[in-house]
Design a protein around this nucleic acid. Structure first.
Length: 645
RNA sequence: GCCGGCGUAGCUCAGUCGGUAGAGCAUCGGUUUCGUAAACCGAGGGUCAGCGGUUCAAGUCCGCUCGCCGGCUCCA
């Protein structure tokens, strides 16, 4: 038998007989590697340890520390889950079960729902299968043969998948009695899975199609060590404490009320302060960047939305039209038509371009009942919207300015977890899009050049563009790792021709302008939600609804406390006096829980030399200093919008 | 919209087998005047989400509706 040459990551190589398994190669390196290895990688292909090596080449072993290690491990955990479920519940038909970012899930079709108790039973069965240390065996089938095997087992969902996706010869994995159509690779046996937990059961749809069978999805997570698992569960608990819905109530920032309806936000005084700070900052920046601030009506004639095309492609997201004097009016789901009407109100010259119309525009969208989520997904919200009307040759400059502005937003509010996506058209289906191929090439080129020139890493997403133009999106991540879209910069090849927009060029002829939609914060509501979670409610001084609390030690110090209060007010610091009949400790505790940045304790000593004893929210007692000095410090933190101090 | 869970005082929650509702915190009144994360005493506060049904009797069992939570789907 011929020998093959296997090269290791350190560059050394060794000969093995053809057909040697990856595991045997690992053993030749050392027993420790053989014990730790989960799978192997040949070239860029992942294989099982039981796979036979047929050709010379490099090999790499996947261990718990490899980037792919956890994913393979969790995928095998999903199989373990399915093995346990099919064993306990013969009427449960497995669908699909992949690894996810934080764990894994498996979807089952079953008439009766799984209960919490069922999850416990399943977990116990999984433990049992771990103890049995069942091998994950790979079996090859021809397509016809495979379909027959799964048909005999009554696994109609698997048959469907095989018919749709399987190669003429495909692999399946056997774990105990459970057989799954699966590409692999898998860890050698179930005995390796020690730290796992089933987390929840939720509804899903077969193949993600809403009209298809309802499925039951069991979520779980698995780690290489019990310690890692516990750390993850602890992190979930911590994240819950940052949930903006929890903090919104505890800090009295906003509410959503049954009497008013779901998805409609009430901004309480404290939330209102933060919103005003955000908006004031934004308006100043918009003005400095050559935007014009406008206001447009909240309801307009329905025919306007027919012209824009919304009644065709956006109807299911619009509130119903209302009748006024035999005419139909529509609550606005977007601001674009309003801005377009301002543009159209008179003849425009190329000298006026680019024209940047900005509005904090409140829109209403009908969201289906199951999708609302705190401030993140609502039915009424305010966008920091703007539309830039310009000539094609101005596009790139305008896009760059938008992206730079977006990054200033991220920096100002201290966001560091985000991802940038460029959504382009699907080149296979040019007929799905408005505008010509030339226009699209120009627009996609402008977007991509901008990102590349600015050295911003991004995900290129062909086929993800909306029909009217390509876009750049920036998504931020919430407390439990869910991404939320905020910033969007989008081209629009659709609306300018639909509304017959034009400008007089330097050549004296009429031309159609190009239009860019952009929102940086996205919606003020969603932005606020992400912001609350980002700071866990402990806002930097410039945003904190109450920046300073004055705490007189006893009634004797009331008049000095009052003087301190007034001096801070004159310096335009948001300050409150807490002179309730409570012990100092209790009042400090309340201020801490309200996450007030500074507490000023005043007693005899402070009254005597016009000073304050400063307590910081984060590090506690910071000693006494003259009142004037503290005010200077506070003002500086506010004026510079300091994130840390 | 779909699947599952949940809804008791302002908040967090208890309430057994169906027998007419309770705690802590918060609020209000009083006492206490205090130096860096919860003083003490007392009082008020409920359409048990809503509507309907079963029953001698429903917070508890059944149905419908509304809302919330976790997902799915959707998301210009």
């Amino acid at each position: 038998m011929a020998n093959i040459q296997i090269t290791f990551p350190d560059g050394s190589s060794q000969e093995f007989p053809q057909g040697t398994t990856a595991l045997e190669v690992a053993k030749s390196v050392g027993p420790r590697l053989a014990a730790e290895a989960l799978a192997a990688k040949v070239g860029d292909q992942l294989i099982d340890l039981s796979s036979k090596l047929e050709a010379s080449g490099p090999i790499q072993f996947i261990t718990p520390t490899s980037p792919e290690g956890l994913e393979i491990f969790r995928h095998s955990s999903a199989h373990l889950l399915a093995a346990a479920v099919t064993d306990l519940f013969p009427d449960a038909h497995p669908g699909i079960g992949p690894a996810t970012e934080n764990g894994f899930f498996y979807d089952f079709y079953r008439e009766t729902p799984f209960t919490e108790e069922d999850l416990k039973k399943i977990e116990a069965k999984m433990q049992e299968l771990v103890k049995a240390n069942l091998p994950n065996e790979r079996i090859y089938y021809s397509k016809d043969e495979g379909v027959k095997v799964f048909e005999q087992m009554g696994e109609f969902l698997k048959c469907e998948l095989i018919q749709e996706k399987a190669d003429p010869v495909f692999s399946a994995y056997q774990t105990g009695k459970f057989l799954d159509f699966c590409r692999g690779p898998h860890i050698p046996s179930t005995g390796r899975i020690k730290a796992f937990k089933l987390l929840s059961v939720a509804g899903a749809h077969w193949k993600g199609d809403e009209r298809s069978h309802p499925m039951q999805r069991i979520y779980g997570t698995a780690f290489f060590s019990q310690k890692d698992l516990e750390a993850y569960l602890h992190q979930l608990e911590e994240a819950k404490k940052r949930d903006h819905r929890r903090l919104g109530k505890d800090l009295d920032l906003f509410s959503i009320q049954d009497d008013a309806g779901p998805g409609l936000i009430f901004w309480h005084p404290k939330g209102g302060v933060i919103r005003r700070e955000i908006e004031d900052w934004l308006r100043a920046e918009l003005t400095a960047r050559g935007y014009d601030l406008v206001f447009t009506p909240h309801t307009m004639r329905l025919h306007l939305w027919e012209t824009s095309g919304h009644t065709n492609f956006y109807r299911e997201n619009m509130f119903g039209a209302m009748e006024v004097e035999n005419d139909q009016y529509q609550l606005k789901p977007m601001n674009c038509p309003g801005h377009i009407l301002i543009y159209k109100s008179r003849v425009r010259s190329y000298r006026e371009l680019p024209m940047r119309l900005a509005e904090l525009g409140t829109v209403y969208r009908y969201e289906r009942s199951g999708v609302m989520h705190g401030l993140m997904r609502v039915r009424g919200f305010t966008q920091d919207d703007a539309h830039v009307f310009c000539m094609p040759e101005q596009l790139e400059t305008e896009v760059q300015a938008c992206v730079e502005f977006a990054f200033l937003v991220l920096k100002t509010f201290g966001f560091d977890r985000y991802q940038v996506e460029l959504s382009a058209r699907d080149p296979e289906h040019p007929e799905h899009y408005a505008g010509t191929v030339e226009e699209w090439n120009l627009a996609e080129g402008a977007l991509m050049n901008t990102l590349k020139r600015m050295d911003i890493p991004f995900k290129y997403m062909p086929g993800e563009a909306v029909f009217y133009g390509p876009k750049i999106d920036i998504k931020l991540v919430d407390a439990i790792g869910r991404p939320w879209q905020l910033t969007t910069v989008q081209f629009d090849f659709n609306l300018p021709p639909r509304f017959g927009l034009e400008y007089v060029g330097s050549d004296g002829h009429l031309h159609t302008p190009v239009m860019v939609h952009r929102a940086l914060l996205g919606s003020i509501e969603r932005f606020f939600g992400v912001l609350i979670e980002h700071y866990a409610g402990a806002f930097p001084v410039w945003l904190a609804p109450v920046q300073v609390v004055v705490l007189p030690i006893s009634d004797k110090h009331a008049s000095y406390a009052q003087a301190v209060l007034e001096e801070l007010r004159r310096a335009k610091v948001r300050v409150q006096l807490d002179d309730r009949n409570e012990k100092l400790n209790a009042r400090i505790r309340d201020a801490q829980l309200q996450k007030v940045p500074f507490m000023l304790v005043v007693g005899d000593r402070e009254a005597q030399n016009h000073s304050v004893a400063v307590r910081r929210r984060d590090t506690g007692d910071a000693g006494s200093r003259p009142l004037a000095e503290f005010i200077g410090w506070a003002r500086q933190l506010i004026d510079t919008r300091a994130a840390k101090w």
